[in-house]
Nucleic acid binder design. Structure first.
Lengths: 347, 347
DNA sequence: CTGAAAGCGCTAACAA
DNA sequence: TTGTTAGCGCTTTCAG
């Protein structure tokens, strides 16, 4: 099964290959020739091979997407956003799942490098190191949803962003990697204020790997009420999340409110409190990061901080496709506190 | 920023390019030469370009994955399965989201063709037609989770499969596209038996696009109790699912049990019955297709038919990677009825 | 406006 | 065991 090549088309149309190439990429040609070439190409069902083109142009043209886990609906939505944008640009997307593990992330980056995929969107797994090779190779990288690391003490760089048509952005120094983020700070602050307003004083945070900005925002929003003992972290697995939730709730019975910094963490919190006989929101108020369709179906319906998952992906894709052009240093998308039934006044 | 090529390595090592190629792909070479080449390659941080190799070999080596919607956790898990298998084979995965729309599916197939991705795993969106070009181009295709269409009257082809280490499989005629499926028939049958056993007689089915096997199994399992009026289909969107559920429950108040043929459908059913003041399981018993972490957190916890999402993907990837070899015509993975709290005796 | 020809990086035949 | 060489399909000068 031999594939139709440009040469076949050229011969069949009685022109040179260069002419065919020109016609197909919108170059100049006499209307007459153009017509004939197009007709022949259509008739032969000719599809230019990306292989040849890519080799010639030294780039794949596709875009890479690295997320921690497609099972997490947030990343599912994010991926859909990226795919939507990529499709409208006609670009293929190579997807990798890192499991939030820098090692796997590095491996996937290597794979993309090998494929000459020179544009990548990634939810970085924390270790900035692994991106060295990518940068050195001149990859266009856009981070989304996370920042690789936060210089301790360094103030949040995105704070300087300006509000611009509903979204904040600013010119970026060439060194930094553009980043698309949800406004965690504001989301967390709103949630904490809400809980404080309900009278809660012992408010815990249950986090997973990553999301340093959420934790920082949590500490800041809580101010003097913050207690490091009430800030706990689980690993990436569901078991680990459950264990962390359970142990937190068991060893600190005075906790009356909990902010779960992610979806799986929220599930774990519900399960654990149920197991411990804690009633939501009677004994424990719960706010979960990230809205999902089923949050409403839960018992009780979960109050959540919603992130625009799809938008995050779409914007990131826009950014990475606008390579070369003057791009904003970052984009900050709004979050929203959706109040349902999982929070109540302090018991 | 010029990339290091095989030529650079060859020069630096004082050998020919062919030797470098051989060494790097495990061909024969004197230990001495091999050592030197490897050392030089490592020192130069050389990465063979997939572009050159692919063009030469006339294939990309990557694998394509087409799913309806990454937002649906089943497909998220499925994708994770594919990615896991692909990673262990060192293959990149190009992902596309079809939205269950044959047109988009066709477009994505075209894109893969253009990229010379010659191995594809797909959850087909129903129209077998669109796979014509792929087959003609000699693509290795594996279907997963769905079959493109069921010849009406034709008995289920997978029924002939043999049980083989916990999984059924059989040699396939070369014409058919290998397919990895969850055992819908058995899943639906079990669920229907269960509902019948609870005394239900008016059992409805709420389906989305696709899944003809589930519907067929439903009719068959219900036997004389089947009523076409109680078998309704929604489009792909959440709104459409809700509308269908709502209208079904409103116009047939005698329905006491409902089988939701998918996750979004299940959500819709819960929402709609809540809206209509129907209590689950008091007034309506509900079984939902596909288990998800939050089914347990629902109120009440949902009884579900679980599919091994990740396995489906993994097996499909195994199959597509074993191209050329004698492959089974299909794989049938077991489903499981997980009884929780959403079903009760007929009111 | 068009065609001939030179590669892009790699592998596989063929020589040595 | 090695090196030389011929392309894979395409784009892009460079002549005509």
């Amino acid at each position: 099964m031999k594939r139709t090549t440009i040469k076949d088309v050229a011969e069949a149309a009685g022109v040179g290959v260069a002419t065919v190439s020109r016609v197909l990429s919108g170059g100049s040609a006499s209307p007459e020739t153009r017509e004939r070439v197009l007709a022949v190409a259509a008739h032969l069902d000719y599809r230019p091979s990306a292989l040849g083109r890519n080799l010639r142009q030294q780039r794949t043209g596709g875009i890479g997407l690295l997320v921690p886990d497609l099972t997490d609906t947030l990343y599912g939505r994010l991926a859909e956003g990226v795919l939507a944008c990529a499709r409208s640009a006609g670009e293929p997307v190579v997807v990798g799942s890192t499991g939030d593990d820098p090692e796997q992330e590095a491996e996937l980056i290597g794979m993309l490098l090998e494929q000459s995929v020179d544009r990548v969107i990634a939810v970085p797994s924390g270790d900035a190191e692994v991106w060295g090779p990518a940068m050195r190779a001149g990859m266009t990288v856009v981070f989304v949803g996370e920042q690789p690391e936060q210089e301790p003490g360094d103030d949040d760089p995105l704070d300087e962003l300006l509000l611009l048509d509903g979204v904040r952005s600013a010119p970026r120094p060439d060194s930094a990697i553009p980043t698309v983020l949800a406004d965690d700070r504001s989301g967390v602050r709103t949630a904490v204020q809400y809980l404080k307003g309900l009278g809660h004083r012992r408010i815990a945070y249950l986090g997973g790997p990553g999301h340093p900005r959420r934790v920082a925002a949590f500490r800041q929003a809580l101010g003097p009420l913050a207690d490091e003992d009430l800030i706990v972290f689980a690993g990436g697995s569901r078991d680990s999340a459950y264990a962390a939730a359970s142990s937190l709730l068991q060893s600190h019975r005075d906790v009356t409110a909990l902010l779960a910094g992610g979806n799986p963490l929220g599930e774990a919190a519900v399960l654990a409190s149920r197991e411990l006989g804690l009633r939501i929101p009677g004994d424990l108020s719960l706010v979960m990061y990230d809205d999902v369709p089923w949050a409403e179906l839960c018992s009780p319906p979960l109050t959540v901080i919603a992130q625009p998952g799809q938008d995050l992906g779409y914007r990131a894709a826009e950014l990475v496709l606008r390579a070369g052009a003057r791009r904003p240093r970052g984009v900050l998308l709004p979050t929203e506190l959706i109040v349902r039934g999982s929070c109540g006044p302090r018991p």
